[in-house]
């Protein structure tokens, strides 16, 4: 996939000028991650300002999910430093979690609990009020199923529940791993709606996705990972 890359930043650029524009949501410095014998991330350096909605592209196995999980504090970098809104990912992991919400490929809900109970649990653990639960359930079209255990849900329904949880949390940085996957058209519109809401609230969003066409027009930029390395430049 070719991109017309804006020229790589000249070395003489004044970093403080960029910093005063907007704070950095994500700052990666030579972040690498290894799993046993496999080097998945080979040294990523990234500056992502707050409020941007960015697509993360790359083929399967390129390291997209690993990067997202790293930012969600589920993984530690093998080397390099990473920070989210100025908080170090390793040393201040608890603080980072307050700012980050993660939508994984898996549903992320407890099958033995109902949809409503799952969202309520997330609220209690986040310290957020529970009033928004019913509204979000309605928004994703799960109101009639709110009191059914999640194990009977289809994968699309589980996805929608994940979207509801994400919206409820309303964190500063949203990490979405293949949000459109296993959703019907109605579900995909929910994702689009979610992105609009994020935009309206000034949230920062990083979306790993295989669907450039769907995202075009909704994102500010896209970056590409290829075999654990970020390719030159960010494109629009």
């Amino acid at each position: 996939m070719t991109e017309e890359a804006p020229a790589p930043q000249p070395a003489t650029e004044d970093p403080t000028a960029a910093a005063t524009e907007r704070p950095l949501a994500v700052r990666l410095e030579r972040v690498a991650r290894r799993f046993g014998r496999e080097q998945v991330l080979r040294g990523l350096s990234l500056r992502l300002p707050a409020g941007r909605i960015v697509a993360l592209r790359g083929s399967n196995g390129s390291g997209k999910t690993t990067l997202l999980r790293l930012l969600a504090t589920r993984l530690r970098p093998s080397s390099g430093r990473a920070s989210v809104f100025g908080r170090d990912l390793v040393r201040e992991a608890a603080a980072v979690r307050r700012e980050v919400a993660y939508l994984a490929v898996h549903g992320g809900s407890y099958g033995t609990l109902t949809a409503r109970e799952n969202l309520r649990l997330a609220c209690v653990l986040t310290g957020a009020p529970q009033d928004g639960v019913d509204a979000e359930l309605a928004r994703v079209g799960l109101s009639e199923h709110a009191d059914r255990p999640v194990r009977v849900f289809s994968s699309g329904m589980k996805r929608r529940l994940g979207l509801a949880r994400l919206a409820l949390r309303d964190a500063a940085l949203w990490l979405l791993d293949e949000p459109y996957a296993s959703l019907d058209e109605e579900g995909r519109e929910l994702v689009d709606d979610l992105l609009s809401r994020a935009r309206a609230r000034g949230r920062t969003v990083l979306i790993a996705s295989h669907e450039p066409e769907r995202l075009a027009g909704r994102i500010d930029a896209s970056i590409t990972i290829d075999r654990g390395v970020l390719l030159h430049g960010a494109t629009e």
Binding site: R74, A95, G127
Partner: peptide, 18 residues
């Protein structure tokens, strides 16, 4: 075991609680 299914525990661990 219940926590390991569907990435439930994984999601839980991204939430800000001790």
């Amino acid at each position: 075991q219940g926590d390991l299914q569907e990435g439930a525990l994984d999601q839980l661990l991204t939430l800000p609680f001790p």
